[in-house]
Amino acid sequence: MSAAPASRLPDWFIDIRHFKSQEQLSLDLTRHLPRRIVVGAAAVITDRPTVLLSVVKKRWSTLVREVERQYASTLQQAKKQSLERELHRLQSYGFAVISKRTTATQVLFSTPEALAPEDRFSTIYLTIPLSHERLIPLMTHLRSGGFLVSYIGWPGVVDSPLPK
């Protein structure tokens, strides 16, 4: 069975991801991001954008080293070429908080309210609980067929605090 054709894509996908600590959240996010930036710009919604950006950037460097290691250890030409291409991609992406964003920014770390009205993303990572009233405006920034990746359970439902 193949994936649904593009014309039959739902309005959005909601991916509820589970984690046990803030460390696991940033690890999951850093592994998930490379696949989604290929599709288009991504936003990471957090109440501490600068802190999370710093953590993700560190993890990103580790990821790049891992791909370099895989590249160096493979002898298969096709695999080597794919990994080389992956390396260039990973090293080319721009990460920023709202105040330092440029036209080269593909991953934006922000609070929900700081996004510009015209901002549109293929993926929005939600790392903080948002009330329904704060979630609805955020969803206007998600492109059709895009992913809301939630680390806080079902979005719009505020209940238990996040794990430390």
């Binding site: 998930h32 791909v67 695999k79 070429q81 291409r85 992956e86």
Partner: peptide, 17 residues
């Protein structure tokens, strides 16, 4: 596959290419 780092990276890199 998400948790098998090497498979995850290589397979998606090849898929995208």
């Amino acid at each position: 596959h998400f948790y098998t780092r090497e498979t995850w990276i290589t397979a998606w890199a090849m898929f995208d290419a």
